[in-house]
């Protein structure tokens, strides 16, 4: 914890736009090709040794954001500073070296391992690519070392991915991400494809490895309970934008954005059944092909006014480190106080 003032990852105004090809037919008929703003002007930072939880519905752009941060998908605009270096401006060679320091754990443990490679080849690949092992035997030793850390062993070295269960495969994926001793890991929904019983094991494993290896996580999930369990800070994403971000205890206990409030109210309350006040959202997530103007949430927001339809809200700090982008922030406060008062009795 040498530099709390200098975050490990600093994301500045990051955008990712996917554009359709401008075909000849489109040009002749004057039809504009489609463009999807998967990530729109997003800024945040991740401190060393912290877990930033990124939460949002399917299709809100959270996976794209995670990949754009690692430059797996080339960002359209904005910068990503990793330990002070602008990742978005790196040359191919420098980016390759940087990849040793930042890794990703994927969602689908079935698709993320090459079915034609053995565990030894899969987990040893980063060592080979970055020349981190002097000999074959040293490589094998390192692979066995990391496999034991994730709960597998040397007997698994020559097996193929299809011979493992989902949880085991995810352990292999984690071993591959960690063998080059990276500092920053993007966990892209690493447990959502697993059974609930296995989820807990993998989350526990990730937490243990974080302490042991001094890691920093950007943890992407659509599961509030998972995010709430392991995050230091939370960012809530809606249609490519971060609508609320702050310390986990603050955001999840006292959500200030109506979207976060509705997400939180969707979590069943075991302690006080019946007292639960559900903020229901109507309608679907609008298509990112044709996002609504103004505040993107206004089509589903219970508090929306005419003003929300025209101007996009500017993030406002409501308490230290807790920022919310909502026009109705101050009107919403009263609603919340009554809610928390009801919770108190």
């Amino acid at each position: 914890m040498t530099s709390l003032t200098n975050p490990l990852v600093q994301v500045e105004n990051l955008s990712k736009v996917y554009e359709g090809r401008r075909s000849l037919a489109n040009r002749l008929t004057g039809v504009e090709p489609f463009s999807v703003r998967a990530v729109n002007d997003v800024s945040f930072h991740v401190d060393r040794g912290e877990i930033l939880g990124l939460i949002g519905e399917s299709g809100c752009g959270k996976s794209t954001l995670g990949r754009a941060v690692l430059r797996l998908h080339e960002p359209t605009a904005g910068r990503v500073l990793f330990d002070g270096t602008d990742v978005t401006a790196l040359s191919a060679g420098a980016l390759k070296d940087m990849r040793r320091r930042m890794q990703i754990v994927f969602q689908d443990p079935y698709a993320s391992l090459n079915p034609r490679s053995t565990v030894a080849d899969i987990v040893g690949l980063p060592l080979r690519l970055h020349g981190l092992a002097a000999s074959r035997s040293e490589m094998r030793d390192q692979v066995v070392g990391i496999l034991e850390k994730v709960g597998l062993n040397a007997a698994h070295l020559d097996r193929y991915p299809h011979q493992f269960s989902g949880g085991q495969r995810q352990r292999i994926g984690i071993a591959r991400a960690l063998i080059s001793h990276p500092e920053f890991i993007v966990c892209d929904e690493p447990v959502s494809a697993l059974d609930v019983s296995i989820q807990a094991q993998i989350i526990q494993l990730l937490l243990e490895l974080k302490d042991e290896m001094g890691l920093t996580y950007l943890f992407i999930s659509h599961d509030i309970s998972v995010i709430g369990y392991l995050s230091n800070r939370v960012a809530v994403m809606y249609l490519g934008e971060i609508v609320e971000m702050g310390p986990a205890s603050d955001v999840l206990a006292r959500p200030r954005h109506p979207y976060t409030q509705s997400l939180m109210s969707a979590v069943p309350d075991v302690d006080a059944p019946g007292h639960h006040q559900r903020v229901r959202l109507t309608g679907d997530l609008p298509s990112p092909l044709d996002p609504p103007p103004g505040c993107k949430f206004h089509t589903r927001c219970p508090l929306a006014t005419d003003a929300c339809k025209h101007a996009a809200p500017v993030p406002e700090e409501v308490s230290p480190g807790h920022r919310v982008a909502c026009h109705r922030l101050h009107e919403n406060l009263s609603v919340l106080e009554t809610a928390s008062r009801a919770e108190g009795c």
């Binding site: 020559d158 097996r159 193929y160 011979q163 269960s165 296995i198």
Partner: peptide
Amino acid sequence: VADIDAGPVAVASGAGQTI
């Protein structure tokens, strides 16, 4: 970590058999 899923599982095909 509880190693419920950590033992080698024999998936239909025998050990060491590739697709």
